[in-house]
Structure formats: structure tokens, C-alpha cells
Amino acid sequence: MAEAAIRIEGFVKDYPVGIRGKRVRAIDGLSLEVGANQIYGLLGPNGSGKSTTIKLLLGLLRPSSGVGTIFGKPAGSLAARQALGYLPESPYFYRYLSGRELLRYFARVSGVARATREERVVAVLERVGLSAAADRRLSTYSKGMLQRIGLAQALVHDPQILILDEPTAGVDPEGTAAIAAIIRDLKERGKTILLSSHLLSQMEDLCDHIAIINRGRLLCEGAVEDLLQLKGAESYLVEGLDASGQAAVKAGISAAGGSLKQVTPARRGLEHLFSEAIQAEEGGAE
């Protein structure tokens, strides 16, 4: 069995409230596995624990219990971080640096060899489409450009895994499409991508696998195709019906004079699945 790129086993994260040790549970026994070369979407409403899970994987937070590994190495360890590229939510970078300087800095701290550093910086700038703006200060960048330079810094040391926290939040449709294209391209290059987002239509098109979490608990998880398929239902693609014929569809397609072209399994949207899962969880919790 191939080693999982990311494995989380029973993550629990409690935050103390006040000095007497009262706790608020942010992550409640979360377990999941991200296979190599997957685009894995972590979905959940605001405050569901997506960013906390990511921070636990990066070692920025310590789990109250549970274990996380990155290619078998403990989450947060130097070796694990070496294999990761991370784009934080609403990234804020040093405004006085140019895009090129920022990438040089992150390449250097990530251990990219001096001999290849410049080449690497140029390549990544090219990939995120910021070559023309590379020497402008970040303070002049738009939100979309900041998101792309954030993606570039995550990529600069060519990590095997990318963790992207809301990579398209606040970005216009054109920018979103560009980021989605970069992510697909990364998958083609063999990278594993874990991303969190609340933009469900984008995730539906982009991800192979998803997990929906709420209140720190995993609600459902699996391949997008499996999760979105409605069991025991079919959809029909009908051609040539007039207005009156439509009313008779239920009585029989053949009798109405139409010709049956295709029968495919019916599919619901990811948005629908998400709402249903959250509602079920919240109904159950009440």
C-alpha cells in the first residue's frame, strides 16, 4: 500500500478559555487521509475547524491529542515542513518587498541552493503569471496578485505537498480560474494538494476527494464522484419534446413520441450535498 501523503489520526484540539482550564473543543477526533497526487478539498462553514486542522498539520498549533504525518514524518517536524508548501488564508506579506525579493527570501529559508535559486524564482513567477510585476512592491499588488504571489512562495522550493487555505477567497473569476489552472497543473506534475475553501462550485470542479467538517468533526469524506452520485436514481436526456409533450413524460416517453437518447446516473451538486450535510449535523446536534 502506497504511503499516504497526509495522514491525520484522531486529531483533537482544545483551546483553554480563561486561566482555570475550561476548554473549547475546536477539532474533535478528526481522522483523514490524503493520498499522493490527489487534490483534496477540506470543506466546512466558517469556524468549522479547517484552518485549525491545517495549522495542526504545519506545527503552528499542537494537537491536544492525535497524530498527523506528512509522508510518514511527524507533522510540524522540520522534515515534514520541508515537503510542504503553504498558502495562508488572506496572505499578508512584507509590503516593502518586491515580488521577486519575497520569493528569493522564501527560497533561501526553504533551502533552495544558491545556484538554482534565481532560476527557480523566475520559473515560479512565470508560472503564477507575475513576471511583469515581479519588481513592484507588494504594497501595490491587488488582492488577486497577492494570492498568486502567496501561491508562488508556497511553490518556490518545489514541495511535494501544497496546503492552500482558501486560495481563491476574494479573488475575481479570472484570477480564480488562473489559480485553478495552476492547481490542476500541479497535480499533473505529481504534486498533492490539500485545499480548504467555501467556494463549493470551484471545489466540485477541482477536487478528486473532499471531506466535509463541521464543529471540528468529520461529516463525510471520499471521492467527489462517489459522494455526489444519487443512489437508485437516473436522469434522462430527452430531445424533441414540445410543451404538451413534457406533461406526458411521466406517463411514458415512448407514448409521447420522443426518442430516448441517453440515460445517466443522476447527480446532485456539491452545494446541495454540503447544505444537506451541515443541516443534518446541526439538526442532530440540537
Binding site: Y15, I19, S64, S65
Partner: peptide, 14 residues
């Protein structure tokens, strides 16, 4: 150790 640190803030501060 983790439990001590995250669940006993007073102890951690001390």
C-alpha cells in the same frame, strides 16, 4: 506534555 501545555494554561504561565 501537550496536554499539560494546552489544557492547563495557569500551569503553563507559572
Amino acid at each position: 506534555m501537550n496536554l499539560l501545555q494546552t489544557e492547563r494554561p495557569l500551569l503553563l504561565k507559572l
